[in-house]
Design a protein around this nucleic acid. Structure first.
Lengths: 156, 156
DNA sequence: TATTGTTATACTCTATAACTATA
DNA sequence: TATAGTTATAGAGTATAACAATA
């Protein structure tokens, strides 16, 4: 069980990482701002899902997600199809065009990181990535757990 | 030397940290929004400094820093004194009131983290903190190095 | 009645550019 | 001429609340 002192130090470093994220974000082309890439990344990783679940993954309000999604649809990067099992909701899915855009963005972000991490080994990077993933789980489980897991009875 | 594939995965996880940071930020009281706490944290950790250096630490434009600093001065949390050795610039320093506010914010952030990290050991937390600090250095050195280190010939 | 998603509105944070004062 | 800092303005990103449609 982590003590509060250690968590306080982690909190400080967390804010530093946000600065690094901004730095990486600045290197992205104007047509794919960070928030856009974030949505594409989640759809690319977890596949088809509905608005509410995307909002959970992004950790922002659904109203915000709705705007981002509308933008992605306008650009022709994702498809938004009606959900046959619940006509209130719509299913979101990355299309081939969106996959290309995501790949390019992801590539650019990786370049920026690699340029600064020249003295890191792959093992170093993996270790950090692993801990961040664990951090995500520690927070994410709690968040989505609030409404006891979304009932994914229809589409996966 | 880290390869681009590993960096791409790190980039994805980095965005997760931003979400966690937002989550922690939401728990802060309205009078100390995240950006305000960030400025206080840096002044608390590195002591007296001028605007330009604070802007570097925050990794935002000086115009943005100027606004935040004005806010901090209005609230009476920092003192802004003229720099005798360069009358264009002003030195910023946390005062006792600001130290109290910072302590309270820091405490709150640590609480939120600790609540989610119940199954983390202190060693786990330290390991992540250490890697994040190294990440900061890998980026920060490059950023401030652009103008070959600020000439700290006068204060500190 | 509750839930999914959209839209209107306001607030926070940031960047760009024009400006003042000093080096 | 260059640099430190301020201010005005614009643009992302997010949250709250009111709303429509469906469960």
């Amino acid at each position: 069980m982590a003590t509060k002192e250690h968590c306080a130090e982690l909190a400080r470093q967390l804010r530093v990482v946000i600065a690094v994220g901004r730095e990486v974000g600045r290197a992205l082309p104007p047509e794919t701002p960070p928030a856009t890439v974030a949505a594409l990344t989640i759809l690319g990783r977890h596949g088809e899902m509905r608005m509410s679940r995307l909002a959970e993954y992004l950790d922002v309000d659904m109203s915000v997600t709705s705007r981002h999604v509308a933008h992605l649809v306008e650009r022709g990067w994702i498809d938004r199809t009606p959900d046959a099992l619940d006509r209130r909701s719509r299913l979101l899915r990355l299309n081939p065009h969106g996959e290309k855009v995501l790949a390019a963005s992801s590539d650019r972000a990786a370049e920026v990181l690699a340029a600064h991490l020249s003295d890191w080994s792959d093992d170093d990077v993996d270790q950090l990535t692993g801990l961040l993933d664990r951090l995500r789980l520690s927070f994410g489980d709690c968040r989505t757990g609030a409404h006891a897991h979304p009932p994914r009875t229809h589409a996966n």
